[in-house]
Amino acid sequence: MLKVLDSAVPVACWSCSVAHNESILFCPHCSKIQPPPGGDYFSVFGLAPRLDLDLGMLEHEFHRLSRKLHPDRFARALPNEKDWSLADTALLNDAYRTLRDPIRRTGYLLKLQGAEMGEEHSGKDRKDPSRVPADLLEEVFELNMQLEEMRMARKMGQTDPDLQADLTAAKKKFDGLLDAVDQDLRGQWKVWDEGDEAARQSAQKTMVALLDRRRYLSNLVRDVTETLGA
């Protein structure tokens, strides 16, 4: 599903036949709408893949393109153009939803890079049982045990104020751990955006590990929040 943008391959506009970069929604020459381009989500916004995005600009571009693509504008257009306005709008929405969320954006970019790294890497990754470090597993298991104990006590109808305090403290702790991961991620964004190939490779590895950790922690936050709300 993920295609890597190959901007070296120009595509001829269906209307004016002038060649243009395939990732463009409208022909730069005749301004006609183009079929959904095959590039990545970044290219929909005319961006190269990067992690530290100007969200204000992204939103502004999203609104501008949404208006330009709006199906109402194609009421009297050719049937193909009508179809493309819908398909391009769907693509634009997917791209915006993915890129505006920092975690989804990071995961998306890592997948894009993974696709580029080829089979050797993904094959090795799948077979690697030590992808989750042992100390993280120990920590997560222990946190889950503590949380379960508190949940059981609550289920038994204990209205111990200490229990409520424990749960609130646990939530605060998990939230803090999650924040720490997000800060680390932001640090790696900078490394990836500004670094050379070697720096990028190492940042990618670090970010994959951080996202793994984040998934465990966000499950804990979800569970403790549920318990507090129940």
């Binding site: 042992a134 597993l137 120990e138 997560v140 298991f141 889950n144 793994d212 998934r215 465990y216 499950n219």
Partner: peptide, 13 residues
Amino acid sequence: GLVGAPECGDVMR
């Protein structure tokens, strides 16, 4: 044995 699936955040002992 303590193992985990990072895809979904599961942990199993």
